[in-house]
């Protein structure tokens, strides 16, 4: 291989070599013109940190709290009811998908959601919300004994005004702050889903489920909150 010395590199080399042997060249300071602004944009001072996923232990404790503050084995029994595994399997089936670490096999905890974790949140959320709707939203349950839907029986016909305070209560329960501080439109968006589901269940042609239309509507609202991104992150 031959090496060719280009004019540019030769000059650079010459300058470098000469710089080694000559006294430093004094360069007089000159006035520098300020750079012209081409655009003005606001400085971004927002913190650059992503939201964190709840530790699986926190999710589980919160879930049990929402279920009435009962131990896991009892929650499993209540969630299953007398329907076998229709709504709930058993806790051990969910632990890996919820992101718990497995110290025995040296598997670390999951710190990010994945599709399966989302499916598990959905499955567990359904069990919680269905059982709560069954228990709370019926005449036989006095208001003080209503664990999740701790409000008077809603009107059979969806009503946006009546919906808001009940939704706010659930919003506080699941997300930890009043709905009025949420991004605009959240209450309306949830009401729309609620209204549609109540209507669908009230339709005489629809298959019958174990829930009344109102129970089904509130179960969906509950599900939307217990699966909400803000519920799972902090």
């Amino acid at each position: 291989m031959t090496t060719r010395l280009t004019a540019g590199s030769a000059t650079a080399l010459a300058l470098a070599l000469s710089a080694c042997h000559r006294p430093p060249i004094a360069i007089a300071p000159t006035t520098v013109q300020p750079l012209l602004a081409t655009a003005v944009i606001p400085q971004d001072t927002t913190p650059k940190e992503d939201v964190r996923l709840l530790a699986a232990e926190v999710y589980l404790r919160t879930y049990l709290q929402l279920f009435g503050g009962i131990p896991p084995v009892e929650a499993q029994q209540r969630a299953r009811g007398n329907e076998g595994t229709a709504l709930f399997d058993n806790w051990n089936d969910y632990l890996a998908a919820l992101g718990f670490p497995d110290y025995r096999n040296d598997l670390p905890r999951s710190t990010q959601t994945n599709g399966l974790m989302m499916a598990t949140f959905d499955r567990l959320g359904m069990a919680l919300c269905a059982r709560a709707a069954e228990h709370d939203l019926r005449d036989a349950t006095p208001l003080p004994q209503r664990l999740l839907f701790a409000f008077a029986n809603p009107p059979a016909t969806p009503d946006r005004v009546a919906f808001a305070p009940a939704f706010d209560l659930l919003h506080r329960t699941f997300l930890g702050y009043p709905a009025r501080l949420a991004p605009a439109g959240r209450t309306d968006a949830f009401f729309d889903v609620y209204r549609d589901i109540v209507a669908r269940h009230a339709d005489g042609k629809a298959p019958r489920t174990r829930l009344t239309p109102v129970q089904a509507g509130w179960m969906a609202v509950c599900l939307g909150l217990v699966r909400h991104p803000e519920f799972h992150t902090y």
């Binding site: 232990e57 049990l64 131990p71 896991p72 058993n90 051990n92 632990l95 718990f100 497995d102």
Partner: peptide, 14 residues
Amino acid sequence: TRLPLGLDLPLGST
């Protein structure tokens, strides 16, 4: 098999 919430809140046993 796992005890994520400690001894006081065991999950199912095998």
